[in-house]
Design a binder for these strands. Structure first.
Lengths: 207, 207
DNA sequence: GTCTATATGGCGATAGAC
DNA sequence: GTCTATCGCCATATAGAC
């Protein structure tokens, strides 16, 4: 798995790796901008300076390309999982950090905003991905609120499971408004406001 | 404007009215299911039992059809505007009623969910529509929270403008989760929970 | 007012040369 | 590993018959 054997054994892969990454970056842009259904392999190929056939050598079908794009982004945002390990305080603070970072990478926000809406439909190739993703996120957030409840740091009447659903909804909804009115909506600030209405936590924005 | 003159003056319109409505209903379904970009006039025409050319006689272009669909739905949901007239209590209770009604008409929820995400992109034919719509909704909700603040019925630290943004975000975000997991997410209940964290209000679900 | 026919072009995917 | 060429399909939109 190290670089040791790349000369012969996986030399091909090492060489094409850069091209693959370039394709995935371009595909992310395209799908983010017009969605999966309206996005075209032609446009993706054009952005990396390739023919469509060349592109399809790396990713045999359009759904396969989408799956690869989502896979790649998941590796980047596996912080979700790591956050969940125990501390509710850390998890919630991580949410704010994520919001701050998102505000500087509109492409990723667009991708998930457009795709999650599109994938709502039965038969969409990313539907299962998003179903699993939301389920996992709700579970992680629920554990975070339960942790804080155990410390008596949740406001009276807060139900962990509901708070988890609400927090997720909040993040998604803020993204739509932010994409339409970036100068009017401050995602991180609004999210922090929202969270402090549910739990006793210091969320002064760090990062 | 009554039926009196339909015989000659507007006979044509009265006759085509039904067909137009049928087309708009079909278009709403199609755009809701796959979005505007991926939706096709062919599919819409098929659903009303017409040729594509016949459809284009009523709505000359695809963007024109989308505009007509949005226009029509706006007439239905002009409650928004009426709600705004003064009473913050009435406005927020109206939100819950809307959530309850939405849960029984998935088509409308899908339409706005998918379109608002898609319309995020510069150049989308519905972008201006959604920008105006959100701006108006924020203003109305802000007035509602201000009204309640005047009655000392908002929780300490609640800023009307932020509460308005958050409430809108909440409604949008809940819709995505509800479309993916209808059995797990209760839109009206979660929204009520959310609102009672901000204001002193009785939102026991009526209707 | 609706149709058939057609123009024009973009789409995903395949075959086969280099 | 990338290309050219091509297939077959679907898209929006137009022209003109009925």
């Amino acid at each position: 798995m190290t670089d040791l054997h790349k000369q012969k054994q996986r030399g091909e892969y090492a060489k094409t790796g850069a091209k693959r990454v370039a394709i995935l970056d371009a595909a992310l842009e395209v799908f983010a901008q017009v969605g999966y259904g309206a996005g075209s392999l032609r446009e993706v190929a054009a952005r990396v300076g390739m023919s469509e056939a060349g592109l399809l050598h790396h990713f045999p079908t359009k759904p396969a390309l989408l799956a690869a794009v989502l896979d790649r982004r998941d590796q980047h945002s596996q912080e979700w999982v790591r956050m969940a390990e125990g501390d509710g305080d850390v998890t919630l603070r991580g949410l704010i950090t994520t919001a701050v970072r998102n505000a500087s990478t509109p492409g990723i926000v667009e991708l998930y905003c457009v795709l999650s809406a599109e994938a709502t439909q039965p038969g969409h190739p990313a539907r299962d991905y998003f179903i699993a993703r939301y389920e996992e996120a709700r579970t992680n957030l629920c554990m975070a609120f339960e942790d804080l409840a155990r410390q008596n740091r949740t406001r009276p009447g807060v139900v962990p499971r509901s708070a988890a659903i609400a927090t997720l909804a909040m993040m998604d909804g803020l993204q739509v408004q932010w994409l339409l009115h970036p100068e009017v909506v401050d995602m991180a600030a609004e999210l922090a406001d929202f969270l402090t209405a549910f739990v006793d936590i210091d969320l002064t924005i760090s990062s």
